[in-house]
């Protein structure tokens, strides 16, 4: 009888242990803002212009890295946008910027997106850009302005591209 109980305990323990190991291809699901070019590219263009120069986030030394025609390029693409004699931001560069931005604080990003950006400033990059947290580059965007609308709308998965365009046009 004792052997039977011991065997049962071992079997149950083994079953519990087996169930606690996640499969090797398991993924953690998070909510992310849209990556579709129509939704993200206008946001990325604004961020690249305002934040992505080579001395700022167009730099491998930063945690948040951006690629594009205003700064760091991928794969030896010519520096500068088309209007500067170079080539405009490529899709691979948009994608690289997206990955860097979304992966910076994935759990917080997920919360912000899931809440439809009720509090975008939970994200560090938002707080820094809007002057709510110490930032070497200072305050880049104004709360309530077009850049605010652009970024918040993207985080809410409904990018206001017109606001992004206006923000880019008026950016220093």
């Amino acid at each position: 009888m004792k052997h039977l109980i011991a065997g049962l305990v071992v079997a149950v323990s083994a079953a519990v242990f087996a169930c606690s190991i996640p499969p090797s291809d398991a993924r953690i699901g998070i909510d992310v803002p849209p990556i579709a070019p129509a939704e993200f590219d206008p946001v990325a263009d604004l961020l690249d212009h305002s934040c992505g120069t080579l001395d700022c986030h167009g730099n491998f030394e930063r945690n948040l890295q951006m690629w594009g025609c205003y700064g760091m390029r991928l794969d030896g693409t010519a520096l500068g946008c088309r209007s500067m004699g170079g080539t405009n931001t490529t899709q691979a560069e948009y994608d690289a910027t997206y990955r860097s931005l979304v992966a910076l604080e994935p759990a917080v990003m997920s919360d912000v997106v899931a809440s439809h950006a009720v509090n975008p400033n939970e994200l560090t990059f938002v707080r820094k850009a809007f002057g709510e947290e110490s930032h070497k580059g200072g305050q880049i965007f104004q709360l309530g302005g077009d850049a605010d609308t652009c970024i918040a709308s993207w985080l809410a998965s409904n990018t206001n591209t017109a606001a992004c365009t206006r923000a880019l046009a008026s950016a220093p």
């Binding site: 120069t53 080579l54 001395d55 700022c56 700064g71 760091m72 030896g76 693409t77 520096l79 220093p172």
Partner: peptide, 20 residues
């Protein structure tokens, strides 16, 4: 482009020219 934060030209401008 504009300068975002760095006062040394040589921080960004160095040879050979490349992606960065």
């Amino acid at each position: 482009t504009h300068i975002g934060r760095e006062g040394s030209c040589g921080y960004c401008h160095f040879d050979p020219a490349g992606p960065t």
